[in-house]
Write a protein that binds this DNA or RNA. Structure first.
Length: 418
DNA sequence: TGACGTCAAGATCCG
DNA sequence: CGGATCTTGACGTCA
C-alpha cells in the first residue's frame, strides 16, 4: 500500500511550480519556467523518497499551457533528457505517479471544441508520463463531466469519446465519482461498459452519494474488480470534510483518529491512497508514520523538529509534555503524538505563548541579523504584544529571514505554514 | 453573469 | 524601492 499527496508540497525547499499568464508565454519564458518545474518535480520526488512517500500526483501545471496552442515550444524534445531522468528516478525508487486534469477538462461536453480541447489535454498529460517512460500503472484520472439535463446522453457521449481516444491514453485513463454530478454507482456502470478502472473518492461519495447506507468498504471492494493486472494496485482518493466549510471541502489536515478508523475499515482492500488535503505532504507523512511497520522513534523525533515551534506557539506546557512523550527511545507513541499535536494546534492563540515561540525562532538570527532587522523584529514583537498587528505579520518576517539566511532547520519547519 | 476551485502571477498599495 | 496585500487568470458548467 502506498500513500501520497497531490501536486505540491508545504515547507519543502525548491519544489515550487512556476507559471505565467497567456500574454507572457514567450518561448524564452516558457523554457525557463519548464526547466524550473522539472527540477522542482525531481526535488519533490527526492524529498518523497527521503520521507517514504511512494505516491505522488504530478501537477498539471508542470508545462504551462501544455495542451494549448499558446505554448509553441517543442518542450517534448527540448526536455527529453530531463523527463527520462525523472522517470528513471521514479522507477529506481519504486514510486508511483499519476496526473489529474481538473474539472475543466470535459470529455463529454456538448460542445465539440470543448471535447477537442479535452482530448488535447489528455494527450498532454499522457505525453508527460510517456516521456518519462512510465508503464500503464501510472495513471491519468478524469471526471466524467457535465450532465446537460440528460445524463443518459451525457454518459453515452463520454463512452463514445472515450472509445475514440488513442490506445496510449486509454490504457492510462481511470475515472472517479465526483461531488456533484456522477455518483459512484454511475461511474461503476460506465466502467462496466468501458472496462475503465474506477477510483473511489470517499468525500465525493459523502457529498454525492448513491446510497448513504452503503459503506466505503463495499464500494472499494466493487471498484477493485475494475482494476486489471496492468493497471497496478487499486487506488482510492481519501479526504476529510472541513467542518467550517461547505460539504465536500477538503480539511486543512488529515485527522489521525478519523483516518485510522477508515483505514481499519478498509485495510484488507490494500489500496493505494491518494490524500486530498490542504497540508499535502505533512498529512502524508503523518499517515505513513501511523501505519509504518518500522516503528522507530527517530521518525517521530524528525516530525517533532518540524512541529515543535507550532506547538510552542500555542502552549509551553504541551511542548514539554510532548518532549516527555518522546523520551523513551524504545517506544513508538505515534497515535498519542499526532493526536496531541492536533489538539494543541487547535487551541486559541495565546499572545504570551506565541511571543515565546517567536523569540525562540528569532534566536536563530539574532547574532547574524543586520541592525535594521533587529530593529524591525523588535518593533513587530512589541506591536504584536500590544495587539496592534496579527501574529502572521511577525511570522512572515521571520520566514523571510529564514530564506535569506537559508537556515536548514527552520526551512523544514512547519511553523511558517500551518 | 457570477459562483464554483485552485494556485501563483500580476497589479497595486504602502511606508 | 522592497515588501505586503489585493486582484486576476485559466478552465467549463450551471443557476
Amino acid at each position: 500500500m502506498k500513500i501520497g499527496y497531490a501536486c505540491l508540497t508545504v515547507a519543502v525547499a525548491d519544489t515550487d511550480m512556476k507559471s505565467c499568464i497567456a500574454k507572457n508565454a514567450t518561448n524564452e519564458n516558457l523554457k525557463s519556467i519548464i526547466s524550473n518545474n522539472l527540477q522542482s518535480l525531481l526535488n519533490m520526488l527526492i524529498y518523497n523518497v527521503k520521507n517514504d512517500i511512494k505516491l505522488l500526483r504530478i501537477s498539471s501545471d508542470l508545462i504551462p499551457f501544455g495542451s494549448s496552442s499558446i505554448n509553441k515550444l517543442e518542450w517534448q524534445h527540448i526536455f527529453k533528457n530531463e523527463f527520462e531522468q525523472i522517470g528513471e528516478y521514479i522507477r529506481n525508487n519504486e514510486l508511483r505517479v499519476s496526473m489529474h486534469p481538473g474539472q475543466y477538462t470535459v470529455l463529454n461536453s456538448v460542445n465539440e471544441q470543448v471535447v477537442q480541447r479535452a482530448v488535447d489535454d489528455l494527450k498532454y498529460h499522457c505525453d508527460i508520463l510517456d516521456l518519462m517512460q512510465m508503464d500503464s500503472s501510472h495513471k491519468i484520472i478524469l471526471h466524467i463531466g457535465g450532465a446537460y439535463n440528460n445524463k443518459l446522453d451525457a454518459i453515452d457521449r463520454f463512452i463514445k469519446n472515450y472509445t475514440a481516444l488513442d490506445t496510449r491514453i486509454k490504457k492510462r485513463l481511470i475515472i472517479e465519482n465526483d461531488d456533484k454530478i456522477y455518483n459512484i454507482r454511475e461511474v461503476l456502470d460506465i466502467s462496466k461498459k468501458t472496462s475503465i478502472p474506477v477510483v473511489y473518492d470517499n468525500l465525493h461519495n459523502y457529498a454525492n452519494p448513491y446510497d448513504k447506507n452503503i459503506l466505503d468498504k463495499e464500494w472499494i471492494t466493487e471498484c477493485s474488480s475494475t482494476w486489471k493486472k496492468e493497471d497496478g494496485n487499486q487506488k482510492i482518493h481519501y479526504s476529510q470534510q472541513d467542518n467550517n466549510k461547505k460539504t465536500g471541502s477538503h480539511s486543512p489536515t488529515i485527522h489521525i483518529n478519523e483516518f485510522l478508523s477508515f483505514y481499519n475499515h478498509i485495510k484488507e482492500c490494500d489500496t493505494d491512497i491518494m490524500l486530498e488535503v490542504k497540508d499535502k505532504n505533512i498529512s502524508a507523512i503523518k499517515c505513513i508514520n501511523l501505519l509504518s511497520k518500522k516503528k522507530n522513534i527517530k521518525y517521530l523525533e524528525q516530525e517533532w523538529s518540524r512541529y515543535n515551534y507550532s506547538v510552542l506557539e500555542k502552549s509551553h506546557k504541551d511542548y514539554l509534555d510532548i518532549r516527555q512523550m518522546l523520551k523513551d527511545k524504545s517506544a513508538y507513541p505515534v497515535k498519542e503524538f499526532y493526536c496531541k499535536i492536533e489538539d494543541v494546534l487547535d487551541l486559541d492563540e495565546s499572545i504570551p505563548s506565541a511571543v515565546n515561540a517567536l523569540q525562540h525562532v528569532w534566536g536563530y538570527f539574532k547574532n547574524k541579523a543586520e541592525e535594521k532587522e533587529k530593529k524591525k523584529i523588535q518593533k513587530l514583537m512589541e506591536d504584536y504584544t500590544k495587539g496592534l498587528i496579527p501574529l502572521n505579520k511577525v511570522k512572515s518576517f521571520l520566514y523571510t529571514l529564514t530564506l535569506k539566511y537559508n537556515d536548514s532547520y527552520l526551512i523544514q519547519s512547519y511553523f511558517f505554514h500551518i
